[in-house]
Design a protein around this nucleic acid. Structure first.
Lengths: 225, 225
DNA sequence: TTACAATTTCAAGGTATGATCAAACTAGTA
DNA sequence: TACTAGTTTGATCATACCTTGAAATTGTAA
């Protein structure tokens, strides 16, 4: 369920938008002034923010600008019908679109859909994320996490971990790992595998518990549940 | 410079409007009858057409109707003071506005401005504005901003930034960037990518904070939140 | 056209990170 | 215990990346 934040001081308008969006299966929350809106925007995760440009405490342009320092949550600005200046400022401050008040709820929904579509196109394509136990490996972003916290890995370390994640439960011999990570014609000693397994263990394991990468004596290494 | 086409058989009136519009920095051309006017309207690109309703060969309503089959160039009809019938017909045939002769040149300019404004507002929301963190990239206007302030970029710099903005979080190898920005058959060394990343960093980053473009050693570069 | 400025590309030198090696050490097995 | 397999470590080495200035190219004004 998509989460929408409305930052708008006209309570009757908020109520109207909220009812319509909830009817469309969105989760909706509202803030009635700029500073508390910005706080909410930063504190929680939102799929979209509808942001009035004329707000008490902190105007919409400023809210958007400050939000953008930390996050890229999509923003639609709500502007006055003839506020050409506002719109330009709004887009410049990082808003994704704007809509002039008073607006048709259908038009708002259409613009929201358009932005969601754009974002899905941006993010989705071929995102290969491997997951095993509490470890994730995003091959495109080249980010690995353990229990949600990112782990800094070098190229070799990352590639090695990726092999284990692609084939969990499968024992990898040193030679197989050399082929897959160092290349089939690499000239390095098999000991480098040992060294890199150690590096991974140092970075992934927490003290006192058994390692995510187990050694199979006489065979090689595995990841097991 | 905006291009205006006048279709009007009263030559002295044409001359008057033309002088005034040129004084306002428009490019102006005229046709003196319906059929040649329609031809010109279809053959070239115009930002607006001023169309008399009473014309030899082909009247204004008919010109407008046929034009609308092919194009949506804005049209202002020039009608007789008391031709109520004309006005209705004119608007029905697809004109955007009308003005009654004889008219004040200021009124004409005001109506033209109103229409241009309406069109620009319509167009702007479809502008492809990429947003990530506090950076925006307007692909159509080819304007990039950081924290609301515009950043001057050369073509290569802009295209390179656009790639990063289109695929945030996705690590781009030098080869991918060369393909996307320099063209798949370009012959340049991959080092130019490094050089341009440096240029972008110089222009986008503020001293003392980590760069918006991170290098992933052994892989390439990324933009990350 | 020429001259000048802006932009793009190349190439070389410097630096730091990461990859590898080798030797010493530890643990498992018979 | 002796032997082998795996671990750990620091030192060395390679190379990826950064930086820079200068050359080449492109665009623009006179």
């Amino acid at each position: 369920m998509k989460r929408i934040l409305i930052i708008e001081d006209e309570k009757s308008l908020v109520r109207f938008i909220q009812l319509e969006l909830e009817h469309e299966q969105f989760f909706v929350k509202a803030a009635y002034d700029g500073s508390s809106g910005l706080q909410l925007a930063l504190a929680e995760e939102w799929d979209m923010i509808l942001l009035d440009i004329m707000l008490p405490h902190l105007d919409g342009v400023e809210v958007c600008r400050r939000l953008r320092n930390a996050k890229s949550t999509p923003v639609i600005m709500l502007t006055a019908r003839d506020g050409l200046e506002d719109r330009v400022q709004g887009l410049d401050s990082g808003a994704d679109d704007y809509i002039a008040k008073p607006f048709d709820i259908e038009e708002l929904l259409a613009r929201m859909r358009a932005i969601f579509r754009r974002i899905e196109l941006q993010d989705q394509p071929n995102r290969a994320v491997l997951t095993f136990r509490d470890i994730t490996v995003d091959l495109d972003a080249r980010v690995a996490t353990r229990g949600g916290t990112p782990i800094e890995l070098t190229k070799r370390e990352f590639d090695l971990l990726a092999v284990f994640m692609k084939h969990p439960n499968l024992v990898q011999t040193r030679d197989m790992l050399l082929d897959l990570v160092w290349g089939y014609d690499s000239q390095v000693e098999t000991n480098v595998v040992d060294v890199y397994v150690r590096y991974l263990r140092n970075k992934l394991d927490s003290a006192g518990e058994e390692s995510v990468i187990q050694t199979v004596r006489g065979m090689g290494y595995v990841m097991r549940p």
